[in-house]
């Protein structure tokens, strides 16, 4: 995996999030509709669009996680097949299409790259779907949350963005992040707490 300068890539990411913000929201709504068409009518054209957008991203993300290109292709196919098969379980009130597809990719990464088990995550998902309580949340609420999370990410200081990126995109354990950055483990933890605190304070307006 090529070494990159700390924060460089995220600076780009933050910029594109900011620029795309308005368009990004529309894109999120469009992707939600595509998933709905897949669920309602097994619409293959809708699936093709989802595949063409997310497939290359899931693959790239898996390569960043340490997978070689052939395995990443294979896993990406598994992830996208799961998207097709489980699309009936996608509930827009719990998050954007990207959130849902991320969880499927993460679970595949846990099962296949980390050789652990994603079962605990699946059980929580089942509980969430079964409870489906009338908690006043809906799609609009989920969209607002996603928008605020994007804002928070774009505003994170570089060193906090960097730990988020290393954890979520490069699949590094906390201790590996500490090693890579040559900082104590406690520093990684506190940067993560600060990053999450930023998310939380952004979201407070919705509580």
């Amino acid at each position: 995996m090529p070494d990159k300068k700390p924060g460089t890539q995220m600076a780009g990411a933050a910029a594109s999030l900011a620029i795309d913000r308005r368009g990004g929201i529309n894109l999120a709504a469009y992707h939600r509709d595509l998933l709905a068409r897949m669920a309602d009518g097994r619409d293959r054209d809708a699936f093709r669009e989802i595949f063409e957008y997310y497939g290359p991203r899931v693959k790239s993300w898996l390569v960043k996680s340490g997978s070689d290109s052939a395995l990443a292709d294979d896993l990406m196919q598994d992830v996208m097949m799961t998207v097709w098969r489980k699309v009936d379980l996608y509930n827009p009130k719990y998050g954007a299409a990207s959130t849902w597809i991320f969880t499927i990719a993460r679970n595949a990464r846990i099962d296949r790259l980390r050789r652990s088990s994603s079962q605990p995550y699946l059980d929580v998902e089942t509980i969430e779907l079964a409870s489906d309580e009338a908690d006043g949340e809906d799609e609009t609420f989920a969209n607002q949350r996603a928008e605020l999370v994007a804002e928070a990410l774009a505003e994170l200081p570089d060193e906090q963005k960097q730990v988020m990126e290393l954890a979520f995109m490069e699949d590094l354990a906390q201790s590996e992040i500490a090693e890579k950055l040559s900082v104590p483990l406690g520093t990684v933890k506190s940067r993560m707490r600060l990053a999450y605190g930023k998310l939380r304070s952004k979201l407070e307006v919705l509580q």
């Binding site: 990411a13 594109s16 999030l17 093709r48 595949f51 063409e52 497939g55 290359p56 991203r57 899931v58 693959k59 790239s60 993300w61 390569v63 960043k64 290109s69 990443a72 292709d73 990406m76 196919q77 719990y94 998050g95 954007a96 990207s98 959130t99 849902w100 597809i101 991320f102 969880t103 990719a105 993460r106 929580v124 949350r145 996603a146 999370v149 994007a150 928070a152 990410l153 988020m164 990126e165 979520f168 995109m169 999450y196 998310l199 939380r200 979201l203």
Partner: peptide, 25 residues
């Protein structure tokens, strides 16, 4: 956790896409 997963989804969406090759779909 859902909010953190939302962050994960946005970060994943933001990677530079890797080409899939002809006829992947």
């Amino acid at each position: 956790v859902r909010d953190a997963e939302t962050a994960g989804g946005l970060l994943m969406e933001d990677v530079s896409p890797a080409p899939l090759g002809e006829g992947a779909f």
